[in-house]
């Protein structure tokens, strides 16, 4: 059995670890609130651009490369969104596993996968395994802002616009040096973590480009309503410039914002995941301290008992020898 001194040392070390994990937990908790606030602050723009696009969609021909699946596409870009720091439980692992699945799927359907990574953890993961990464960006996993994510967003859109036959412009973060040919791609997928609740975060794959249209079934109300129009019909929109040109300008903007909101959501998920991991680490530390204290107390009592036994035994022996004198 371990001595009391060893046990006390361990208790002390577990306690100091617990302090760290507890602090991390508190920080992560406040960061979730912040991240959610950021998501909420970005909502007005998201709603408005959605509304604008819907209006445009009904007025334009909807014939835009970003809305069409490309025939005979050869290259697919995969953006893996990971965190800059660890201590977030399975957060990064889950995303990377999902990314590997997606890459396998794309390779099976004949696509050449071009990998992009954000977040230091993902970069290190691929570097350690000596796997190719076409571009990497770090430093904004916890608080992504519009300017910091500029290069990622622009490059993915440029690359798609250029297609696998064309070339995209060089940007900071790409692994090729300036002046080399940067081949584009025909699809863009993003693997990130969805924030479902404080306790649940799911790794998901989202196809960013081409935009997958959401087809909603229109409900036609039969009967009188068809004839007597409801009276509250939205008037026709005036477009400046014309609808098709406008769509051309708006779609990249829409996709860019979509990608930005993915970063925002991933940031919230990262903090939530870290909070959970740190909470269970703190709980485990408390449990461990409890167990160790129990063993330490037992050892202490055993020591006392032994001392008493020794004293009593010693006194008895003295008394015995006294009598015999």
């Amino acid at each position: 059995m371990a001595t009391i001194r060893e046990l006390r040392d361990r208790i002390r070390s577990v306690n100091s670890t617990k302090k760290i994990t507890k602090a991390q937990e508190l920080i992560a908790t406040s960061r979730i609130t912040k991240a959610q606030g950021r998501v909420a602050a970005a909502a007005p723009y998201a709603e408005e651009i959605q509304r604008v696009l819907e209006r445009l969609a009904s007025a334009s021909s909807l014939d835009h490369p970003m809305l069409r699946e490309r025939e005979g596409g050869k290259r697919a870009a995969v953006l893996v969104v990971t965190s800059d720091r660890g201590m977030a439980g399975g957060y990064n692992h889950n995303v990377l596993k999902k990314a590997a699945e997606l890459e396998k799927l794309l390779a099976e359907s004949g696509y050449e996968v071009v990998r992009y990574v954000t977040g230091k953890k993902g970069v290190d993961y691929y570097k350690f395994r000596a796997e190719d990464v076409a571009g990497a960006w770090t430093g904004f996993s916890q608080d992504p802002d519009w300017a910091a994510t500029h290069n990622v967003r622009r490059h993915l859109i440029d690359g798609f616009t250029a297609s696998s036959e064309g070339e995209a412009a060089w940007r900071e973060g790409l692994n090729l040096s300036e002046g080399q040919d940067i081949q584009g791609f025909d699809q863009v997928h993003v693997v990130y973590t969805e924030f479902i609740s404080m306790l649940t975060q799911n790794p998901v794959v989202h196809q960013l480009l081409p935009v997958e249209p959401v087809i909603e079934d229109e409900i036609f109300e039969k009967g009188e309503d068809l004839l007597s129009s409801s009276g509250d019909v939205e008037p026709d929109y005036e477009f400046e410039p014309d609808a098709d040109t406008l769509l051309e300008a708006l779609l990249p903007q829409y996709v860019s914002r979509r990608l930005f909101s993915i970063f925002l959501e991933a940031a919230a998920a990262e903090s939530a995941s870290r909070r959970n991991a740190m909470k269970s680490a703190t709980d485990n530390a408390s449990e461990l301290v409890k167990d160790l204290s129990r063993v330490a107390n037992q050892a202490r009592q055993a020591q006392i008992t032994q001392e008493i036994t020794e004293i009593v035994g010693g006194a008895g022996a003295l008394a015995d020898s006294g009598e015999s004198d």
Partner: peptide, 19 residues
């Protein structure tokens, strides 16, 4: 300023989308 020129919007303007 839209790409077509400067525009002023007063109350009850007709619906418009501009770049």
């Amino acid at each position: 300023q839209t790409t077509e020129g400067e525009i002023g919007v007063l109350p009850d303007h007709e619906p418009l989308l501009g770049q």
